[in-house]
Design a protein around this nucleic acid. Structure first.
Lengths: 192, 192
DNA sequence: ACAAGCTATTGACGATTCGTCAACAAAAAA
DNA sequence: TTTTTTGTTGACGAATCGTCAATAGCTTGT
């Protein structure tokens, strides 16, 4: 695939492998594919993957974490806006992220890494972070059980609607943002 | 575990193995567990599992299908009610199902069989069936892309809220039904 | 009661994949 | 050049999948 220098610095090699992993998973999903084959496509030996990432799960984890961290950074709500505006900014940025990173996002939520408990925890971290940021901006200290369930549900709605969106045609980002915003109103009624 | 008769009729053995599988997955989730070990716990040989279900995926599939078919049958909306009532009946029955089958339901949506494309298709069948029934009752023939996305999102909200609910305390079924009903109103605005 | 036939059931087997590790080789240091 | 460091490899053992000929329990016929 690449000229693939025979020997690279630890950091450079690591970045290269993670970049390849991201691209690979975006195209092929996280379906079971032997580490041998992945390594071959990446132009290195299987042993090298294990050397850098410990085990298969480790490679998946680091790749996924790269994406989830990116998402979390993207939807950081601006601190100089009132709630309604900050909320809309978060949602808008999220939708834009999905639009810009269609393939990898779909692989993330549809590619089926739910099987792995640890990897799934990374996905849940995005959801929980979103929840906490919203609750914090609303000044809700200790949300009730119902509040948590309601917000979690809304976040899931956003997540899965976006996943479907990546396979649909003719729906603009604005329409999605509008949908998510209006869907949040009944949730707001319930919070604490 | 059981007295485990040495030889059973094909149908009886099949039912017994599926019942065991359901119980096993409810308790342990669908985490990777060797077929050898599963067979041992079930009191049969590994070969027998393969004989009845073809392969590992086949065993998972049949077990999951048992549950998904049950869910689909449960939320069949009554045909003699107006939409609002039929809708509420569907949601209520669904919530009751989750309450009654906590363990297996959580395993279903959290146990991580998303990894497998085919098994995931079974889960999606529940969502799609729900969507179609609602759309049909509303008299929506060919839903727009946005409509599909919106309803799919709402179904995901219900699904994931319920999954969280199985791990939470102090939230009544009625509160959930109320939440889901109010969360549906903005969706209704968008449909076609 | 016994033999013969049917079929539910088994466990050993080859194939595939995971993860390890001692050996190798390319760059840097002396 | 020689030595040292360390990025890299491929062969290996362990674990698991899925197969299949052999086995053993039930049924039928006499």
């Amino acid at each position: 695939m690449d000229p693939a220098p025979k020997r690279m610095s630890t950091e450079a090699r690591r970045r290269q492998l993670l970049a390849f992993g991201r691209e690979h998973f975006a195209q092929h999903g996280f379906e079971a594919m032997p580490m041998d084959a992945i390594a071959e496509h990446a132009g290195v030996s299987k042993g090298l993957l294990y050397h850098y990432f410990g085990d298969q799960r480790g490679f998946y984890m680091e790749t996924v974490r790269g994406v989830t961290d990116e998402v979390i950074a993207t939807i950081e709500p601006p601190s100089d806006q009132a709630f309604e505006d900050a909320f809309r900014t978060m949602v808008t940025r999220f939708v834009q992220y999905v639009q810009t990173h269609r393939a990898i996002y779909r692989a993330l939520v549809r590619g089926g890494l739910g099987s792995d408990t640890e990897v799934n925890a990374l996905l849940d971290r995005v959801r929980v972070t979103s929840m906490e940021r919203i609750l914090e901006r609303l000044g809700v200290g200790e949300p009730s059980s119902l509040s948590r369930i309601a917000i979690y549900g809304w976040v899931s709605l956003v997540e899965n609607s976006c996943a479907e969106w990546t396979e649909a045609d003719g729906v603009s980002p604005d329409e999605l943002v509008e949908l998510f915003t209006s869907a949040f109103q009944p949730i707001l009624e319930v919070l604490n």
